[in-house]
Design a protein around this nucleic acid. Structure first.
Lengths: 235, 235
DNA sequence: AATAACTTGCACACTCGTGTGCAAGTTATT
DNA sequence: AATAACTTGCACACGAGTGTGCAAGTTATT
């Protein structure tokens, strides 16, 4: 077992810092885990390890338990989604909604695992709890839109928010499965989010085209190697 | 091992027919499997058995393999969904689409397992293949609607059909999770299917209210005990 | 070049689920 | 009441995955 904790040792000699390749391997594992778990939510550590180009045994040098790996995936996913969606604010709730879609799309991979984990795994409740802030944000946007008469009023906001969330995720799923281009996906999620929210498709399209905020560019760049576009496998 | 096959024995004495309680138990198992697999797609036979009020060992009297049970679930699910959706035809594609939603809703439980199985399990391809006719039907409706200028044209029909399917299923998921009433669910799936198809929420509502075919009544009654509303557990 | 950090392969114990055999019960049916 | 159909509990073999110990290798870092 290898100690990977960041806290410095007690006394005596300084213990020579963590090696760089080790850190990279750790990220490779996380990447591999994401992409393997997307294929099969029950992927074994063996599978994940070899997708990361390591041996199963080595994983235990970074995570003491399968569950710990999964937990870290949760945390990263939630953090990412939260970071991507939290700052969204706009006078026009419809634009805000479309933005939610767009930002989700830029995190597809993470969103999908996170969504999966939120449903399955023994972590259901925990993950769901972690996503609460995001949900409340979405709900706020929906309420704002309903109040402004911009969104449908025939479905209770709470339900509507969840439907939008579900629709968006299922678009991500479908999009990834059909290997849709980044540009198309970007537009698609926004369209479907707006449609679910009650706009007609023409209204949705008009809105998207009229709002520069919704154009495809300068999406907040990700800092981790846990990027949405990385291959996740090496050697 | 108990023989459950329907074919009569070869020669000599007639072997006294299958007992009635056995047949009931078989259905109880299927019911339990559906509801347990909804909670957890990897539910063990032990879990399913006890949900059905039987012992794990007894399951093997009806299905020689876990996979055989699952396969039967597939077949029933596909048959049901197909039966419910196949006869749908309407001059107005929007009505047809709403009907698809309504019929799906009347089969929620089955639709959900079937959808789950279509994604996971080693049966992915098989299940997907079985659902092909249903998918083609939906695609036909979408094409019809697009041709008639009733549905959105900004998304390719093939993609749109899948999005509608996904949206509908995710509504079913959400609806079941929130324990929505039968009436609400009925309307909800139709609304979301239409919204995804491009209608504004007002148009969708108008259409639904104006079309007697879409009213909640005389849904084709199910013949099996594998009904969408049975509890699935006993004792 | 020396050292500690890391990886690896192998062996092992353990858990959990599947599938089977069999003997002893229940219970529907005739 | 007799009989075959069915259920049950226990035992077992088996496979797959997890988590661990350890000794022997690599390799980044100083």
């Amino acid at each position: 077992m290898t100690d990977t904790s960041t806290s410095p040792r007690r006394a005596s000699r300084p213990p020579r810092a963590r090696r760089r390749d080790a850190a990279e391997n750790r990220l490779a594992i996380l990447d591999a885990a994401i992409s393997e778990l997307n294929h099969n939510p029950d992927a074994s550590l063996e599978t994940i390890a070899s997708a990361a180009g390591l041996s199963r045994r080595s994983i235990y040098g970074h995570f003491s338990t399968r569950d710990e790996l999964i937990a870290e995936l949760n945390d990263r996913g939630i953090a990412r989604v939260t970071a991507a969606l939290a700052p969204i604010q706009h006078a026009d709730a419809r634009v805000a909604l479309a933005l939610v879609g767009a930002r989700l799309w830029s995190e597809v991979e993470d969103v999908r695992v996170t969504a999966q984990l939120a449903i399955r795994g023994p972590r259901r409740e925990i993950v769901a709890e972690g996503l609460e802030p995001v949900r409340r944000g979405l709900l706020a946007i929906v309420r704002q839109g309903v109040a402004a008469g911009q969104l449908r009023t025939d479905i209770e906001p709470r339900t509507l928010a969840r439907l939008i969330e579900g629709a968006a995720v299922s678009v991500l799923d479908e999009a990834v499965r059909d290997d849709i281009s980044y540009e198309e996906g970007h537009r698609l999620v926004m369209l479907v989010a707006l449609s679910t929210a009650g706009l007609s498709w023409r209204e949705a399209a008009e809105l998207i085209d009229a709002s520069p905020e919704l154009a495809l560019e300068a999406q907040p760049e990700a800092s981790t190697s846990l990027s949405a576009h990385s291959s996740g496998a090496q050697a």
